[in-house]
Design a protein around this nucleic acid. Structure first.
Lengths: 119, 119
DNA sequence: TAATTGTACTAATTTAAATAATACAATTAT
DNA sequence: ATAATTGTATTATTTAAATTAGTACAATTA
C-alpha cells in the first residue's frame, strides 16, 4: 500500500507524510477511518516504529489525522482547508517550474480550471 | 555571485552545479569564458576546495565545462544540446506538478511556446 | 624556476536519519 | 479485574552522506 523509495533523497518519515497526505486528500483514506497502528505499519514496512510515529506526529500537527492513546490514529473530519492548502502549494511549484522554463526561453500559457469537485 | 542556502536539503556541491548550469544556459557565463578557479571560488564562498572540485567534476561530466590542469576550467562551446536537455527536464517536472493538481481536482490547460531564442 | 591550477587521495568531522530499547498512560478486550 | 493494545516519550546507538582537513603531484603559466 505504501511504498518506500530507498533511493530517494527524502527521508522515510517524509515520504510517509507525503503519501498519506495524498491518500487522504484523494479520499482513499476517508474521514474518521482508522489508520494502521504505528507498530503494524512499521512492521509491514519493516522500518522502525519511531519513524512511523514521527510521520504520524507531523500528520497530526498538519491537521490530517488525530490520535488517541489507547484507541489509535484516525483521519481528520475537516479536510477542505487542507485541500486548499495543497492546491496552493502545487500552484506555487507550478509557477516555479514555469519561471525556470521562461529563463530557458520557453513560454508557457496556462489556464487554471478549479475543478467541479467530485461530490 | 553564487549564493549558498545552508537551510536547503540539497548539498552544497549540488547547489553549485545547479546554479552554475543556470548561469551557463542563460549565457551569463559565455562559451570558453574562464570559470573561477577551484581554490578562489572555495575561498570566496568559505567552503572547502574539495566541495567546489566535486561540483566542477560533475559539471564537466555533464558537458557544461571543460578543465585543463594548469590552465583552469572553462565554459563549454557546444551548449545547444544541453539546453534542450534542460528544457526536457523542466517540462517533465511541469507535467508532474500538473498531474498532482489533476489529482486534487484542478485542471490545467497549457500551451508550450518554444521561444524564439534570444540570439 | 617559482607560482598557479586541476586533480587525486586518505582521514577525520559533522549532521540528520534511522534504529534500538524501554517505559508509561489510556483504551479495549478477555 | 486483568491482560493486551495503542499512542507517546525518552535516551542511546548506529548509519550514511556531506563536508572539511591535509597533502601530494602533473601540467601550465609567469
Amino acid at each position: 500500500m505504501l511504498q518506500i523509495d530507498y533511493e530517494s533523497r527524502a527521508p522515510i518519515y517524509e515520504q510517509l507524510v507525503d503519501k498519506i497526505k495524498n491518500l487522504i486528500v484523494k479520499n482513499v483514506l476517508k474521514p474518521n477511518e482508522q489508520m494502521p497502528t504505528v507498530r503494524d505499519l512499521a512492521s509491514n514496512l519493516t522500518i522502525n516504529p519511531n519513524t512511523v510515529q514521527r510521520a504520524y506526529r507531523i500528520l497530526e500537527e498538519n491537521g490530517y489525522i488525530y490520535s488517541v492513546t489507547g484507541k489509535g490514529s484516525f483521519v481528520s473530519e475537516k479536510l477542505d482547508l487542507i485541500k486548499e492548502d495543497q492546491i496552493k502549494d502545487e500552484i506555487g511549484k507550478l509557477k516555479v517550474v514555469i519561471g525556470r522554463l521562461e529563463n530557458l526561453g520557453v513560454h508557457i500559457e496556462y489556464k487554471i480550471k478549479e475543478g467541479v469537485d467530485e461530490k
